[in-house]
């Protein structure tokens, strides 16, 4: 008696699977085309449209966009008031990134090296939990915390540390009437809101550093500080850079936090928002929107040169 070596076909599903098995490329094309269409057409396409828009200019009398290629709009960016906005935003983004990195590193290091089981779950929960609530709610909550009548001022009064708070607020350039109306307040809220985006990539990078590399470092004569500088930091750098890309670019583009907390001084995001809306100057808004992209490219080039991606 002979038995068939091939099992009988069980309907159209089998036939489809067989087609995919014989033509593996077909499956790949089918799987990749929707995201590629989205990424290529919708995403990169609109970015190109934005770029195009920034090379147009606006007629100063009629307020109509002239669809002719010109660098005039970009030249406008270099006017003192616009340059001011860019500089303020970049400084803030840099400060926020640095602040996030300093706060995030010990947390990420603990989570990667020491937290196990329940502690690890608690860590993820603690980091992600703030992301589950609305951004606006958090920002307004911070406005209340930082306000002159808020809990921070109250706590400072009751612990006799008002002097410190007043001292900080008296600092020229970054101080102000109260925390909620000063650049320090903007900084604090930015750091709070973007911190998870710094912690998570850092933690992932630190987790990938094998313990044996740290042990070898001690065995070969390195002290703790030397191990940190020569082994941990270079190997965690891709994570730090990934995290800083988030914090830096998110701060560069945000237009809500500076509007609610801080002085009335404008940031890039707010400028884009106003130029494309009330001012109706779409080309200038587009040119402003290109600024963060350009800054990020420069930033990545520097990070690459520093060897941030060598350990990848």
């Amino acid at each position: 008696m002979t038995t068939a070596a091939i099992l009988p076909e069980r309907g159209p599903g089998d036939r489809l699977t067989a087609i995919f098995w014989r033509h593996p490329r077909l499956l790949l094309v089918l799987l990749l085309s929707p995201p590629l269409i989205w990424l290529g057409l919708v995403y990169l396409g609109s970015l190109a449209a934005l770029l195009l828009q920034s090379f147009y200019s606006i007629d100063e009398f009629s307020g109509v966009v002239k669809e002719e290629f010109t660098l005039k709009t970009y030249a406008e960016l270099f006017r003192a008031q616009n340059l001011d906005i860019i500089l303020r935003t970049v400084l803030m983004a840099g400060a926020v990134t640095l602040g996030c990195a300093v706060i995030a590193f010990p947390i990420a290091y603990f989570a990667a090296r020491f937290a196990r089981g329940r502690w690890k779950a608690l860590f993820y929960l603690g980091v992600m939990l703030p992301l589950w609530s609305s951004y606006l709610v958090k920002v307004y909550a911070w406005k209340l915390i930082l306000a002159k009548e808020g809990i921070l001022t109250w706590a400072a009064e009751h612990t006799g540390t008002s002097i410190i708070l007043d001292g900080v607020l008296a600092l020229p350039g970054i101080g102000g009437n109260s925390l909620s109306t000063s650049p320090i307040g903007t900084f604090l809220v930015f750091v709070y809101v973007w911190l998870p985006y710094m912690i998570l990539p850092m933690q992932a990078a630190l987790e990938r550093v094998p313990v044996s590399l740290l042990e070898a470092s001690a065995d070969l004569g390195a002290g703790r500080a030397q191990t940190f500088r020569s082994v941990i930091l270079p190997l965690a750098l891709p994570g730090v850079v990934a995290g800083s890309i988030f914090t830096f670019s998110l701060t560069l583009g945000d237009y809500i936090i500076p509007q609610i907390i801080g002085t009335s001084a404008r940031f890039i995001g707010l400028a884009v928002y106003q130029f494309q809306g009330t001012a109706g100057n779409l080309p200038l808004a587009a040119a402003f929107a290109v600024v963060p992209i350009a800054i990020m490219l420069v930033y990545l080039a520097i990070a690459k040169r520093m060897g941030a991606f060598d350990a990848l």
Partner: peptide, 20 residues
């Protein structure tokens, strides 16, 4: 005495070379 201060060197199982 800390590992770094012992005049002892170790070759690790996975070699523990620095990839960067």
């Amino acid at each position: 005495i800390d590992a770094r201060d012992r005049d002892v060197a170790m070759v690790f199982q996975g070699y523990a070379l620095y990839p960067n």
